[in-house]
Design a protein around this nucleic acid. Structure first.
Lengths: 378, 378
DNA sequence: CTTTCAAATGTGCCCGCGCACAACTAATTT
DNA sequence: AAATTAGTTGTGCGCGGGCACATTTGAAAG
């Protein structure tokens, strides 16, 4: 209807009448004061309506909402933050960065977040738990809730143990953001991570490129704790689906769960790479990628394509030497950084976070790796 | 020396004495007020020292700087922004988005920046110039300076014409940020773009993967205005260097400047793709990528690997159909967005921008393209 | 007709910084 | 000695929103 067209006009005219000529020049935002003047009430009343704290007559509410509908009021976040001079406490729950290079990168994101938000009075406390010890997770989660933070960022790598933790968060009414691993039963503020099925497909496509069958591709889940690897299976499924959808593919896909701590580990992997039909290896874990690369390099198997995960230092070395052909970057640093960012924006600026923040599946090669390392965020 | 160890301690003790017990609890930042109290002067004096506006006695300056050396004062940017309630005017100089899909994406970045910064009183005016008309650039640049913006973001695609424009900016003392194309003679606040030589190398590596020689790779510069293509040559050089450094490469590299408006264009390109030795095409321009793809697809040449630039809609279609194998993403939207961001941060928050913000060379494939499209910024 | 009380409404201060202006000091001039 | 001046130093206001508190209103109770 025509009203839609005229509403902004009306608003401008009204403001124009009140503030006179110089209103049109200044491209300033409408303030609470302006709304109050337009509605013929005081700023206090507008404030109460905006935050619906009650204590407002039906009549006043009507007047204010009527004005609100005609203009689009955006509160000045700068002023809001300065005024309500709260300091927020955020808890970051991640596997101990000292024990694992992948989580060390996540920790870098947390450290950067600490620096960025410090001046806004946000304190971020890290609660590291033992990557190999589910009890420690349980214990730390309880400790976090006891400390009553205003928000939690968490990498819930233990599926079963994380569920009661989320229950705790809910009953304590602490908003939390998930990253790295998604738990579908959880109701977090946001999840930050990647589509793992699609990630496997990317690996498959890179594996397939320029290869001529017949031959075998191996999917390796190299992890100390392979039983709890639902998310690794998602990658494998994506990898397989890619080839299934290519009807005329002449490649066979085999998959193995390998524990590098087991004595039989090296033997198993050697048997695999000495099979001449093996054209490529897709490793689903970041640490495993370097392990596989070291073995391939040691045995001079340059012709086997190797695709793995993440820009850990070891992986970068093997990428530069050419043993690793592609890395898919999960960007743990940025995941942590953005997780905290979403949380703080929610707490401080009342900005809503995207429920799902799925990161791009970055393909890292020998030639573009430096461009990633140089570009701030990585 | 030991002093270094004790300085923070001393600082804490002093503050502790002044503010009493509850100081240690609050993790708040030090304010000008605190410095004033510590130095035994008024906030006005501290303010004058901080902004070295003079009008301060030697004695007072000594006292304040002494305190400043002991603590690390970080001004509250929120308060600063709120207080000095200036409104900034930024000019964005880009090729007319209506005439070109690549620049349409840049424009999206500008539009997003407008929305993001509007509430902070930043007005961003776009000054589009004709991509095919150097005079229009000249004209628009002069117009911008006449309007006296507080800062300029510019994509200087015309090398020669941009130099006098920069002179104008300098003499008018307007800070400016370059993006997309770097001009080495310019002294901008920042440059945002990619390493084009490295970009060509990435293309070369993706081209080489799994290919078996002998054969030919073609580098195509498909552009209406090929003479002014220094930046396209950089990509070509990177591409060539990759193969030169691989001593045992069996591939020949050929390069062509092609103008799609010329009548001979189609003939030339057909001759090229009908040569059976041709294994791959690397197109240095985003629009050219789609042009090459359409011809390859039309003639059923699925076996020729095609690598090009940017996520334009046409390119995405050819990527999904499999005609294009890889796109290198220059991320024009993000370039524009970040350019403005750097500029506003400089103007508003006095934050220094990185002189060179080189973007990662993102590799886009059929399988990861959706993850890029879905992830907010692209 | 006053008193009481709750609901409704308005006022004023604070957040930390920047900036203009007032106030104070000491030295020089009239 | 009073006035002028320059050199310092301190004070106060405003930015916009949040929030506590003061004030007003109207109606019911005494």
């Amino acid at each position: 209807m025509c009203e839609n067209i005229y509403i902004p006009l009306v608003c401008c005219v009204v403001l124009f009448e009140i503030y006179g000529q110089n209103f049109m020049d200044i491209g300033k935002n409408i303030r609470i004061k302006d709304i109050a003047k337009l509605a013929g009430v005081s700023v206090g009343t507008v404030d109460r309506v905006l935050h619906n704290r009650g204590r407002v007559s039906e009549d006043a509410l009507q007047k204010v909402t009527s004005v609100m509908n005609q203009i689009d009021y955006k509160p000045n976040l700068i002023a809001r933050t300065l005024g309500s001079n709260k300091s927020y406490k955020v808890a970051a729950l991640i596997p101990d960065p000292a024990l694992d290079p992948y989580w060390a990168q996540s920790n870098l994101g947390i450290i950067q977040a600490q620096a960025e938000w410090a001046q806004y009075g946000v304190v971020i406390d890290t609660y590291p738990f033992d990557l190999y010890n589910k009890d420690s997770f349980d214990h730390i989660a309880r400790e976090v809730v006891e400390d009553q933070p205003d928000g939690i960022v968490i990498a819930p790598i233990f599926y079963h143990e994380s569920l009661p933790a989320f229950e705790l968060f809910h009953s304590s009414e602490i908003p939390y953001v998930l990253f790295n691993t998604n738990i579908h039963e959880a109701k977090p503020l946001a999840f930050i991570g990647q589509n793992l099925n699609q990630s496997g497909r990317v690996g498959a496509q890179l594996m397939n490129l320029g290869q001529h069958g017949p031959g075998t591709f191996a999917v390796l889940h190299i992890d100390e704790d392979v039983q709890d690897s639902v998310h690794l299976l998602e990658k494998e499924n994506g990898f397989r689906e890619y080839f299934l959808e290519k009807s005329k593919s002449k490649f066979e896909i085999v998959a193995f769960n390998l524990n590098p701590l087991k004595p039989s580990f090296k033997e198993e992997i050697l048997k695999l790479i000495n099979d001449d039909s093996l054209k490529g290896i897709f490793v689903s874990t970041s640490k495993g990628t370097a392990v596989a690369a070291s073995i391939l390099e040691h045995h001079g198997k340059n012709d086997i394509r190797l695709i793995g995960y993440d820009m850990l230092q070891d992986n970068l070395n093997y990428l530069k030497s050419g043993t690793i052909d592609f890395l898919i970057n999960q960007n743990p640093k940025r995941q942590a950084l953005l997780g905290i960012s979403h949380l703080v924006n929610h707490l401080m600026f009342k900005k809503s976070a995207p429920t799902m923040d799925l990161f791009p599946l970055e393909v890292i090669t020998q030639q573009n790796v430096d461009s990633y390392l140089g570009s701030g965020i990585h």
